[in-house]
């Protein structure tokens, strides 16, 4: 039987007093791709932000309910007081709708999560950066210019770089908020292939507006409508 990786229980979220999620209760299967679909403003992106507590970086939000994630076989209540956020966010990676490389070199962008965690060994950094870039099929394109600014890459390359960066800490869950919406068809297909390959080692939640894409990659579809969860296939 499939094991659940994430469980939300009566999860409600309001932003500046406006209710965005209402009693959202569901489970997400481990090593599967779940697509979150629904009309604009239905709370899909906000739902993702509640799974790594990233909403707390912006003022005005309030949350009730519970989110449990299984790490190393044990269920963790991520909203438990004192729960280490930096560790949570390394295990629950996120890729945003618009590519958001930092204004630094390609190498440093990908190595950034490791540098944050205190890794300074150049050999280790170089090996992990190369591995992440290979995984997103970007290594061949950038290996000769790792010291160039990441901002000089094309949109598709930037998004793959951001996925590589999110993969570097070896997350167990990857949240992707419309990761292909700013890409052309070819780049989007490359990212889709990549996501399908990633589910061997990751649980993926993908917000998508494209039904064709959902059909191609998703093992399960969850529909959000007016902040409430409705199950799909």
């Amino acid at each position: 039987m499939d094991q659940w990786k994430i469980e939300t229980e009566t999860l409600s979220f309001a932003y500046n007093g406006r209710e965005i999620l209402t009693n959202a209760s569901t489970r997400f299967t481990e090593n599967a791709i779940t697509a979150l679909v629904g009309p604009s403003g239905s709370g899909k992106s906000t739902f993702l932000l509640t799974l790594n507590r990233l909403w707390e970086t912006l003022p005005g939000g309030s949350l009730s309910g519970r989110v449990r994630i299984r790490f190393d076989g044990q269920s963790h209540d991520i909203y438990e007081p004192g729960y280490p956020l930096d560790r949570l966010r390394r295990r629950v990676g996120m890729v945003f709708q618009m590519p958001n490389p930092l204004p630094m070199s390609i190498f440093k962008n990908v190595a950034f999560p490791l540098l944050l965690a205190g890794e300074r060994d150049r050999a280790v950094l170089a090996a992990r950066v190369e591995e992440a870039l290979r995984r997103v099929h970007l290594w061949r394109e950038v290996k000769e210019r790792l010291n160039d600014s990441a901002l000089a890459l094309s949109g598709g390359q930037q998004q793959r770089l951001c996925i590589a960066r999110a993969l570097v800490p070896e997350p167990e869950v990857l949240l992707l908020d419309e990761p292909t919406s700013s890409l052309d068809q070819r780049a989007a297909r490359a990212v889709e292939e990549l996501l399908v390959n990633l589910k061997e080692r990751c649980t993926l939640l993908v917000v998508s507006h494209y039904l064709d894409q959902v059909r191609r990659i998703a093992d399960r579809v969850v529909e959000l409508s007016d902040g409430a969860i409705r199950e799909g296939r």
Partner: peptide, 18 residues
């Protein structure tokens, strides 16, 4: 913008590191 504000924390940065 919020996207930049969230980039660091999403990668495990503490508030000070961000």
């Amino acid at each position: 913008p919020p996207a930049i504000r969230m980039t660091g924390p999403a990668l495990g940065a503490s508030r000070l590191q961000n």
